[in-house]
Structure formats: structure tokens, C-alpha cells
């Protein structure tokens, strides 16, 4: 090799990519104008395919928003056209939409309750699955097998109908009971996710924290869980969407969620001799889809934040260093 050829081992020069911003702007614009969604999606994908070196966060965000909007656009268009062909009406009345959106607050409430319980349960049980004591391990395994083996709908019925009578407790709040059932269900799956994630943390980290004399709680809180987070989040987002789908079941025990009010609207339609309309449930499906995508985007943002926290920042200037370090560093005059 001749010496004249410049070596290409050095870092490539930083190139500003004008399309990154364009994709993000297009993605954001597609929220009011869904027609731009496919454009943002396509452009984002092209860009992502070409480059893998610099930060892809903005591209991914713009592309994801564009993707969500174009999926919505396609689904709504396609199915509405189909139904119109069958000879149905296009949309519900405004009042019916208001009922559905009010009821979606109940759904979100149940989702939040069961998510909170599910996270706590999965943390506790996931850690207990790896405990040193045989009995704790066994109990955790039994819980996981129970929660994953039983159907969530049967669990909801047992929880909301049978348990209050069996234990002679007053039927406090069906929302709470149903949320407990869903939380147990989520806890079973979440415990396995967390167990797998804890096992995926390199062993050296545990050994290092042992040699630093951290207590088990400190070890979990400050060393293991932060590193397991990148492994936990993607399946946890999927699991949350599964639980959101599961909240539709609480309507069967009489909680006034989206599905229940959809059924009420159906009863009204039957009473008014309009017949059962498939378009009503199509609207409900779209509502659930929007909720699921909101959950999806929230988890994506969270993932991005976690990933960002692992990227090192730039080097601090001497002025920005904390005082005790600045004084201790030789060569830096404070």
C-alpha cells in the first residue's frame, strides 16, 4: 500500500443531514394532516436504511408518528369504504362519540390501576423468582404459573363476582376489583420479563456491586435495574397494550368502560329499530387502537430517554466540574 493514500481509519466528518429535520417536521405535521403520514414514514425508512451512524432519535420519532397516522388513515379509509358499500351509515352521532370518549376515561383509569399493581407485582415476584430461599422461589413460581395459566376473563369474574361473596367483603368497587384481576394477570407475565432482564445483566456488575459492599436493595436499585431497563421496556410496552386490550373484558362484570357504553349505544339502536350496526364497533376498535398507539408512543419515548442516559455526554469544562473534583484534579486551576 502506498503512503499517499489517506487512511480511512479516522472518524468520518460530521455531516448535517437536512432530511432528518424534514422527516420530523413531516411526522409532526401528519398529526393535523394525516395525508403526510405515509410520506414521513417512507422518507424516514429510506433515511434509516441508509444511515446507521449518527443519532436516529428524531428520524425514528418522525417516522413512528408518520407510521401511526398513515396506519390510522388506511384503516379508517379502507374499512369505512367497505362498510359504506355494505350499506351502513358512516359515523356515529356526536352524542354517541361523547359517551364513548367519556367512557374511555374509565378504561384509562382501569389501565393505570392495573398497570401500577402489575408493575409492583412483577418487580416483587420477578425478584423473588431469583431468591436464594427455596420457599420464596417456589411461591413466586406458583404465582407466575397461576397468573399466566388462568384466563384473564375468568379471573375477572372470580375477582369481581365470586370473591366478594366468598370472603363476605362488601362489593367495594368493581373497577378496583377488575383492576386487581388484570394487575395479577400482568404481574405474572411481567415477572418473567423482569426475571429474564435481571439475568441478562452481566455477572460482573453483580460482583462489582458486592465488592463495593452495596446492600441487596442498593444493588437492585442502583446497579441491576437501571441496566435491565433497556431489556425490560420493549416487552413491557407490548404487555401494557395486552392489558389495555384486556380492559375491554371488565364491561362483562358491569363496569361502564368503552365496551359497556358501546353496548348501551347498541341497545339504543336496537330499541330505535335501527338494527345492529357494525360501524359502531368499528369506531370502538379505532378508539382502542388510538389508545394502544398512545401507550406505544409513551413507551417509545421512555425507551429513548433510557437509551440517551447511557450515551455519555460531552466532556465537562473545568468550570462545570463539581467543586470537590475541580480542586482535587491536578492541572485545573479553580
Amino acid at each position: 500500500m502506498s503512503m499517499n493514500v489517506p487512511s480511512d481509519t479516522g472518524a468520518p466528518p460530521e455531516i448535517e443531514h437536512p432530511r432528518t429535520k424534514l422527516v420530523l417536521v413531516l411526522g409532526l405535521l401528519s398529526i393535523p394532516i394525516p395525508l403526510l403520514g405515509p410520506v414521513a414514514w417512507w422518507m424516514g425508512n429510506q433515511e434509516l436504511r441508509q444511515r446507521d451512524d449518527d443519532d436516529r432519535g428524531q428520524l425514528v420519532l418522525g417516522r413512528t408518528i408518520g407510521m401511526v397516522m398513515s396506519i390510522l388513515l388506511l384503516v379508517v379509509l379502507g374499512l369505512l369504504v367497505t362498510l359504506a358499500a355494505v350499506g351502513q351509515g358512516w359515523l356515529l352521532t356526536g352524542g354517541q362519540y361523547r359517551t364513548l370518549i367519556k367512557a374511555s376515561l374509565v378504561t384509562i383509569q382501569i389501565l393505570i390501576y392495573s398497570f401500577a399493581l402489575g408493575i409492583v407485582l412483577s418487580l416483587v415476584v420477578g425478584v423473588a423468582r431469583l431468591s436464594d430461599h427455596r420457599w420464596i422461589r417456589g411461591a413466586a413460581l406458583a404465582f407466575v404459573e397461576f397468573a399466566r395459566g388462568i384466563s384473564s376473563i375468568i379471573l375477572i369474574f372470580i375477582m369481581a363476582v365470586a370473591i366478594p361473596i366468598l370472603l363476605d367483603v362488601p362489593q367495594a368497587s368493581k373497577i378496583l376489583l377488575a383492576a386487581i384481576a388484570l394487575g395479577i394477570n400482568m404481574g405474572g407475565y411481567g415477572a418473567e420479563i423482569i426475571r429474564g432482564a435481571i439475568l441478562s445483566v452481566p455477572k460482573g456488575q453483580v460482583e462489582a456491586s458486592l465488592s463495593l459492599n452495596l446492600t441487596p436493595t442498593q444493588r437492585l436499585r442502583h446497579v441491576i435495574l437501571p441496566q435491565a431497563m433497556t431489556v425490560i421496556l420493549p416487552p413491557m410496552g407490548n404487555l401494557t397494550i395486552e392489558i389495555l386490550k384486556g380492559t375491554a373484558l371488565v364491561s362483562l362484570v358491569g363496569v361502564a368502560d368503552i365496551m359497556q357504553s358501546a353496548n348501551n349505544i347498541r341497545q339504543e339502536q336496537l330499541f330505535a329499530q335501527e338494527g345492529t350496526k357494525a360501524v359502531l364497533f368499528l369506531n370502538v376498535l379505532v378508539l382502542y387502537f388510538i389508545l394502544a398507539q398512545i401507550v406505544n408512543v409513551l413507551f417509545k419515548l421512555w425507551e429513548r430517554r433510557v437509551e440517551k442516559s447511557y450515551e455519555g455526554g460531552r466532556t465537562l469544562t473545568p468550570d462545570e466540574l463539581p467543586a470537590h473534583i475541580r480542586h482535587a484534579t491536578p492541572g485545573v486551576t479553580g
Binding site: 388506511l74 384503516v75 384486556g246 364497533f281 382502542y288 394502544a292
Partner: peptide, 28 residues
């Protein structure tokens, strides 16, 4: 793309509502 959209839509909506939807469609 439409296949992916349909997959994503069906995956993230509850089976219960889908069952009601199929029921209503069948009646219609």
C-alpha cells in the same frame, strides 16, 4: 404496507370488540 397496517390494527385492539364487530357484520 396495507398488510402491515391491518396486522398492527388487529393486534392492538381487543378480541372482545372484534367478536362483537364480526357478530354485527354477520347480522348486517
Amino acid at each position: 404496507w396495507p398488510t402491515m397496517a391491518v396486522i398492527e390494527f388487529i393486534r392492538s385492539t381487543p378480541v372482545l370488540v372484534q367478536l362483537f364487530f364480526w357478530l354485527a357484520l354477520e347480522r348486517a
